[in-house]
Design a protein around this nucleic acid. Sequence first.
DNA 1: CGCCAGGCGGGAC
DNA 2: GTCCCGCATGGC
Length: 279
Amino acid sequence: MNRIDLSRRPFSLDHTLSCGQVFRWERQGAWWQGIVGNDLIRVRQEGDILMYESGNEETIRSYFQLDLDLDRILQSIDRDPVIHGAIGHCRGLRIVRQDPWECLASYICATYANIPGIIKKIQLLCESFGEPFDTEYGTCYRFPSAEAIASSELCDIRDCRLGYRSEYLCETARRITDDPAWAGRIAALSCGEARTELMAFRGVGPKVADCVLLFAFARYEVFPVDVWISRIMHGCYGLPIPSAYQRIAAEGRAIFGDYAGYAQEYLFCDRQRLVPGRS
DNA sequence: CGCCAGGCGGGAC
DNA sequence: GTCCCGCATGGC
């Protein structure tokens, strides 16, 4: 059994993995199991100790961004009673560092679907096109490469129940296969330029682009707006509903500052409490 | 059953 | 530029 001493750094494994930013982690009793890159990771938290029995410390530290000063970030976004409540409720949630292709493909599949449904679609996608590997915990599947998707028949991708998203995913996979340096190029761009570049992929609009910027490129200033965030910004911050995407995003950025994306995740994580009367 | 979901593309204007 | 609609599927 390996241990990472969190040494009083705020971290909540449960909030981090169940808040809806990632779709491939499974809870197995006290353990969480997921695949990061090529590796199976099994982790479990007990207070200030993060235990792991598969995977290596460097991967885990980097994936969960354990060396990021979360206290400082939370202090910087804690600017009103609404976000203060969300922070109190979800403290320790960290934005994980996702692989750019997995994040992009996942959020293309996530449009206009609910989270349990997204999890199923992506699981089907991985079991159909991902590379299987055996572990002492059973057979696991890596996230399919862009090449694997690009070289598959559209009808086989449709079998993963992606609906109209199938063609978007397939086309984006082909473009990325032809341009393997895409992520490095985007990482070097300014936020606005990177966003434009991402939105050139089919199936990627402002919301998906912002999620990819936030979750894969660590652009913590972007404020993705989905229907829940829209409701919260209406109900708790007085914005008219409906408001244009860019208006809400700009307002989030103005209210919360350089870590608006972190604020967004805390609000999203706490959405059921913040938007009463929905489940 | 009907309504909704981490929206987007395309067309109208 | 903004508004509006259709969309394929499943969760609740």
